[in-house]
């Protein structure tokens, strides 16, 4: 991979983040309902009190200036203060960030391991295994996370009592135990999707001429599959994993609320309903950042596995 390619991708990442931060900042203030109303609630303030609050929130300054102040703050790690609790936004967000990241990480591992295993098994074993995987994927892609959540809770928490229905127990193992079911609900759809893509990509590769060359050279079957068929199937697989992981961050809104997990997703839902503008801005930016970073990593991995992408653009 050329350094130039990496720099181009990173430049794209920064530009996207900057543009989306502008969009997030301005769209919140263009939405109906002025932020200071959150503070006054049902009371009707005197014009003087309103002006004082607006001044304190810097709402009396022009939008570009406010954006600039916010952006420079963000770059220094200062996302402002919550309008509801008056805590600093970074501390509110920071406490949930680790939880959400570990939830997404567990879900991502589940997706990659289960999705790949099922897809590979289906591609290599036509007949019963293929049909069984096909049935599983058809069902799993039709179950949205909130339905999966209630099914899992009724079986594993209420009937069997293996995992907590809500909240995170203390300690590392407690955390992990609490994350299993939310991660599973998150992973189910993506897992089925990845299994399908893996199966089809691998089947397609197994029929390729260069795979035939490898077989014709007397290479053992596992080498042919690993080095040639799977290697060739990686681009679509990486794309799907990258997109699905990026999408997981959005799905945490539902799953964290359903399982009472104190992460970013639940914080977003709470802050939106309380109209806590600075917090919503911060988490929205984080979600976008997660998405953009996941996409950039996907692109870089693509170029790492397919040499033809690396030189594209440099030579004809």
């Amino acid at each position: 991979m050329t350094p130039r390619y990496v720099l181009l991708r990173l430049g794209g990442l920064v530009t996207t983040l900057l543009l989306s931060s502008m969009l997030i900042f301005s769209s919140l203030y263009l939405a109906p309902g002025s932020p200071e109303n959150v503070i006054f609630g049902n009371r009707t303030p005197s014009p003087a009190a309103r002006a004082a609050v607006r001044h304190q929130l810097h709402l009396d300054r022009p939008l570009p200036v406010r954006y600039w102040d916010w952006l420079t703050g963000v770059l220094h790690g200062d996302f402002g203060r919550s309008m509801v609790t008056d805590q600093s936004v970074s501390s509110r967000v920071g406490s949930g960030l680790g939880t959400t990241l570990s939830l997404v990480a567990v879900a991502a591992v589940l997706i990659a391991v289960l999705g790949l295993a099922l897809g590979i098994a289906a591609a290599l074993k036509p007949g019963f295994v293929d049909a069984a995987v096909n049935l599983f994927t058809s069902v799993s892609v039709a179950i949205p996370p909130f339905v999966a959540a209630s099914i899992l809770v009724s079986i594993f928490s209420i009937k069997l009592g293996w995992f907590p229905a809500t909240g995170l127990p203390d300690g590392f193992w407690g955390h992990l135990r609490g994350l299993v079911m939310p991660a599973f609900s998150l992973a189910l759809i993506s897992c089925g999707y990845l299994a399908r893509v893996t199966r089809n990509a691998l089947r397609e590769q197994l029929a390729k001429e260069h795979v035939q060359t490898a077989v014709g050279r007397g290479l053992p079957r596992r080498v042919v599959i690993r080095r040639h068929a799977l290697r060739g199937a990686l681009p679509p697989i990486i794309t799907v994993i990258g997109l699905q992981i990026a999408g997981l961050f959005a799905a945490t809104l539902i799953v964290e609320t359903a399982f009472g997990i104190p992460g970013i997703g639940r914080l977003t839902v709470q802050s939106v309903s309380q109209k806590d503008f600075p917090v919503v801005q911060a988490v929205a930016l984080l979600l976008v950042a997660a998405f953009v970073v996941a996409n950039t990593v996907t692109d870089l991995l693509q170029a790492a596995v397919d040499p033809r992408l690396r030189t594209a653009g440099r030579t004809a």
């Binding site: 390729k208 001429e209 260069h210 795979v211 035939q212 060359t213 490898a214 014709g216 050279r217 007397g218 040639h228 290697r231 060739g232 596995v305 397919d306 040499p307 033809r308």
Partner: peptide, 17 residues
């Protein structure tokens, strides 16, 4: 060891990666 095969289309028959 015994037989070696040369295919018609090297572009398709050599793994591009």
């Amino acid at each position: 060891r015994d037989v070696g095969m040369i295919f018609q289309d090297p572009r398709a028959h050599i793994d591009p990666t």
